[in-house]
Write a protein that binds this DNA or RNA. Structure first.
Lengths: 196, 196
DNA sequence: AAAATTGACTAACACTTGTTAGTGTTTTTT
DNA sequence: AAAAAACACTAACAAGTGTTAGTCAATTTT
């Protein structure tokens, strides 16, 4: 069997996905070509197919990896014994951190999921809907307990998720704002805004 | 000279841009083809070039139309004699409304600007940076006057713009939330969160 | 009515797309 | 050392890309 290649402990498949992430983000899934990708990997286009099955498979891998990561975390938070405000804070912090240190993947899951082929597309959207619903439930719970101000839970979730997923567009122009400062300020704004 | 065609008082060029907006949003600029567009317009692909100069020109038209609209509004707000909080509220409301009733265009200006050819790309990004800077200045002013809580103005701007620009992804799954309710709740969250 | 312009059409261009087949070399397993 | 698996290569495919050229009918301007 073939083993590990490329730098570090990464399979060639992992290298491909890593390079593809960058490319998909820069050019968009549709505009990024396999020959383009191959060049960045340092191989001919046809050789990619010794490691992957299709261009779409790369997208699937990225999107569901991200989705699963968020889902797993949500389950942990739901099972924990914190106040609803602390729960939301934990979620917001995770989103910000993931956005900062692996925003290539997250950007793609956020913006390029349209190009997923069925049935993956439906599957992905279901997971997404479910995730949002469960976040809204947490906020609804928080309102019922009197911890949060009276606000439409869905609107709050939309606001939070959108705000966080927009970090990337900021990144480049504001490297001066440190990651810590960004997280602190964003949490302050988004969580304080929920408090009663 | 040729006149008005299509329904309403719209030039065929306007019809093309309208159809293209929808297509670009659904499939992405790269994945939407001119033959695809032509079919939606009800014409052969080559005939499109009697009205436009290139595929990229359509994107330019859309992006700069949106950018100018926001810029114009910002100038009016800046020139007005309102408190900084009211200024921000006016801006947020405009963003939400534009998002709700012409989100095809705004979505494209938000997500497909990467495909603009130079020098339009640089031009667009400059306008964008300038817009954000001026919003941050308003908030900075608000903090200095003691109207707003102490928060990094850039982070606040990022949060607000990202939150608002994410409305579209919500639209389809939550038509039940009326436009008014959405606006009310979002303003409540985003503006109250700024207050001291 | 004549002239000019508009705007649709067909055909074609040069090129890029994702992907498969087949071959040969290197590396791993037996 | 022999057998097997992994993997990079070249060549090619069918289909799709944006766009141009050239033609002709309809409409508008003179």
């Amino acid at each position: 069997m073939a083993k590990i290649q490329g730098k570090k402990n990464s399979t060639k498949k992992e290298v491909i996905i890593e390079k593809a992430s960058k490319l998909f983000r820069e050019k968009g899934f549709g505009a990024a070509s396999m020959r383009d990708l191959a060049e960045h990997v340092g191989v001919e286009a046809a050789s990619l197919y010794n490691h992957i099955q299709s261009k779409a498979e790369i997208l699937q891998t990225i999107c569901f990896k991200v989705a699963n990561e968020f889902m797993t975390n949500l389950e942990q938070v739901e099972a924990s014994n914190q106040s609803t405000l602390k729960k939301m804070e934990a979620i917001v912090r995770l989103h910000i951190r993931m956005m900062l240190d692996q925003y290539e993947h997250i950007y793609i899951a956020d913006h390029e999921w349209r190009h997923l082929p069925e049935p993956y597309l439906s599957n992905f959207l279901n997971q997404r809907r479910s995730y949002r619903k469960r976040l809204a439930d947490i906020i609804e719970d928080g309102i019922a307990r009197g911890e949060m101000k009276h606000i439409d839970p869905y609107v709050a979730v939309l606001t939070i998720l959108s705000a966080v997923s927009g970090i990337d567009s900021w990144q480049r122009s504001r490297k001066s704002t440190s990651a810590e400062s960004l997280e602190t300020n964003m949490v302050k704004y988004l969580i304080e805004g929920l408090k009663k």
